Amino acid sequence: MIRIVLVILCLNIYTFAYHISKISTDLLVSDIILLQNEALPAENIKKINKAKITEILLKNCSGVIDQETFKHYPKLQKLTLLKSNIEEINTPLPLSSLVALGSHLPNLNDDLQQKLSKVQAVLLIGNKDFEINVQSLKKFKHLENFFVSQANFSEECVTKDWFREMNSLEGLVLSDVNLICLAEDAFDSLGRLRFLDLSYNHLQNLEKKIFKKLTKLEKLALFENHIDHLDLSVLASQKNHLTKLGISWHVIKNSGITAEQLLRALPKLSLIDFGKIEMPNDFEAGEFCAVLRQNGASCGYEAEFGTAKNLGYSYVGYTHCDKL
């Protein structure tokens, strides 16, 4: 399970002792109540500077977002909620990016989708009570990155209907969201997808053609599921482009897959990520990784896949901040 120990926002260095901090085009507001029909309190910032703000972080805040909340921030593009409780969103938000970390906000249904109709990137982590209606999800036609961990979907089996209109999607994380199955055509409409993380779920089987239409996929994570055996034919369609694979060591071992076989199936492979907090220490794993290293690839654990990490946030030990 992904645990957020510490989140570092890669905007600049903020001093959390203050209620309001501003650096360049980024604004931090902490420990306030957002009142209905009132603008976001930021009295120490001149109006001319507010007009330049493109990113706002609300930390430990609560209340309601309506048409008055961000009226002084016409260029606002990215909203981050950190440990905040947003009870209602009553106005359209012309955001390109929404991030919620350990925060409460209204469930993702048709109403919220209409208010976020222009959003291109969504990251939702650490709200076990948050529910996503899959019939509303497919209406996000402009989404390029959709990263969800520790939340709930209205259905437990992913079907093609979930993403039918999301033709621009390049990054998809459905990690620790209680999925139990994937329809064979679940990802058929996602021809632009480059990153797919299905870790920490309850998947038991992978249909042979599940990834066939993912002709640009570069990174795939499957570790920490209930998959005991992997048929390499499932990855046959990924031969020319998959470079990084996240899979539990016991799956490779139980399937009798050798490093040579894996490299023949995925000749562009540069990394196997076992997804554990430590490397497997048995002799076979050592031999397996040694062969990979001899062929320009490597083994790692939590080396590549991590929901927050891949959207520009970090857990303790991660400092990768180059997206969104």
Rank of each mutant, 00 (worst) to 15 (best):
I247K: 04
S237G: 08
L196M: 04
L269A: 04
S255C: 06
H241G: 11
F211G: 09
E260A: 07
S270Y: 05
K209S: 13
G256H: 10
L217H: 04
C181E: 15
A265W: 00
D231M: 07
P267W: 05
I210D: 00
L172F: 06
E184T: 10
K253I: 00
G256M: 02
T215P: 00
V177C: 12
H229W: 12
L262R: 06
I180V: 15
E260R: 11
H226N: 14
S168G: 05
V234M: 04
F223Q: 11
D228C: 04
H229P: 00
D188G: 10
K216D: 03
Q204E: 14
Y200D: 08
L220W: 02
L174R: 09
V234G: 02
K213F: 00
A236F: 05
N225I: 11
E260D: 12
D176Q: 15
S233G: 07
F187I: 11
N225K: 06
H241R: 15
S175K: 08
S175C: 03
A221R: 06
L217P: 02
L203Q: 05
L220S: 06
G171C: 05
K208V: 12
I252K: 02
S199C: 02
E218I: 05
L245V: 13
N225R: 13
N205A: 05
I257S: 01
N178L: 12
P267Q: 06
L179N: 13
L232T: 13
L196N: 13
F195W: 10
E184Q: 15
I247Q: 07
A236V: 13
A221W: 01
V177I: 15
L242F: 08
T258D: 03
L222E: 03
N205V: 15
L266W: 01
Q238E: 14
A221N: 06
L179E: 10
A186V: 03
D188R: 10
L169V: 12
K216I: 01
K213D: 14
A259Y: 08
D185Q: 12
A186C: 08
I247A: 01
S270V: 15
F223G: 03
D197A: 09
N254T: 09
H226G: 02
S199Y: 09
Y200M: 12
L182Q: 03
E224A: 11
K216G: 03
K212V: 14
D228G: 07
H202T: 07
K268S: 08
K209V: 05
G246E: 07
S189D: 13
A186D: 09
G191K: 14
N225E: 10
L245T: 13
H241V: 03
Q261N: 09
I252D: 01
Q261S: 08
S255P: 00
N254D: 09
C181Y: 03
